[in-house]
């Protein structure tokens, strides 16, 4: 579960409000989609949830652990996939995964099995011994996803995770997200692709100019839609009229 209570963040000594008093609760057992145009504040909020940015105001708790007060315990609760998978280009895939496993203290008994299973599932087993530098964008995305899942985190936080993935891996990831949520755990992800949100999410929130302008279950969202109106049209309407 992720609790976001009254969170705000501004840049340039308060002149630009990137996230403005956001309140959200992402419950256990659900896939929560976070939608918004470029520069709406999605990544800023995700960075605050994960401890990369400090919130100016408000509280963020992951499974009850406050990211400010108990950062290490809170960080152990989630696996994070950033929007830019260009990381540690000069490490091999395997070195990267082991670094992540060490940092998240994955016990030796489980790490090898899990690593091999995930590498196989994402068709990365043959590339794991090579430098990440030699990977395509999609392969980098996959190795980052595998690294985030190694410690079997109860909460998944994924920033634009489908970008660059081939259809097969994208399908697999969506399936894994569903499986994860169905075991009573939490998935929080941001996306530009409304189609994905519509098909995968249990609940969504739309953010624009730092404020959550619409949130609810897919069913509630559909009630907002006028006849024959697509989520895409609603999204455009909401974000352009602001």
């Amino acid at each position: 579960m992720i609790e976001i209570i009254g969170v705000s963040k501004s840049y340039n000594s308060g002149t630009v409000k990137a996230v403005d008093n956001v309140n959200l609760t992402i419950r256990n057992g659900e896939i929560f989609g976070f939608l918004g145009p470029n520069g709406a504040g999605k990544t800023t909020l995700i960075k605050m949830i994960t401890g990369i940015l400090n919130a100016d105001e408000g509280t963020i708790k992951i499974n009850g652990k406050d990211i400010r007060k108990n950062p290490i315990e809170a960080k152990m609760q989630f696996g994070f996939v950033p929007d830019d998978p260009n990381i540690f280009a000069r490490l091999t895939g395997l070195e990267y995964l082991n670094f992540m496993a060490d940092v998240y203290m994955v016990p030796p008994e489980t790490r090898l099995d899990l690593m091999q299973t995930l590498l196989k599932r994402f068709e990365m087993a043959a590339a794991a011994g090579d430098l990440i530098q030699s990977y395509s964008h999609g392969m980098k995305q996959k190795i980052v996803v595998i690294g985030a899942l190694l410690h079997n985190p109860p909460v998944w936080i994924l920033d634009e995770p489908m970008t660059g993935l081939d259809p097969r891996s994208s399908f697999d990831l969506k399936e894994m997200m569903r499986e994860h949520a169905d075991t009573g755990k939490t998935v929080f992800f941001s996306t530009h692709v409304l189609d994905v949100a519509e098909k995968v999410c249990d609940r969504v929130a739309i953010i624009n100019k730092g404020k959550v302008i619409l949130g609810g279950s897919m069913q509630e969202i559909h009630e907002h839609l006028r006849e024959n109106q697509s989520l895409e049209n609603l999204f455009l309407e909401l974000t352009e009229n602001e």
Partner: peptide, 25 residues
């Protein structure tokens, strides 16, 4: 950069499998 794209053997995995303390890693 060129890559070998060679399947790793179980000994490749085991070389890392023991793990190290996070600080050392």
């Amino acid at each position: 950069t060129t890559a070998r794209r060679k399947m790793l053997t179980s000994s490749d995995y085991e070389r890392f499998g023991k793990g190290s303390p996070a600080l050392l890693s």
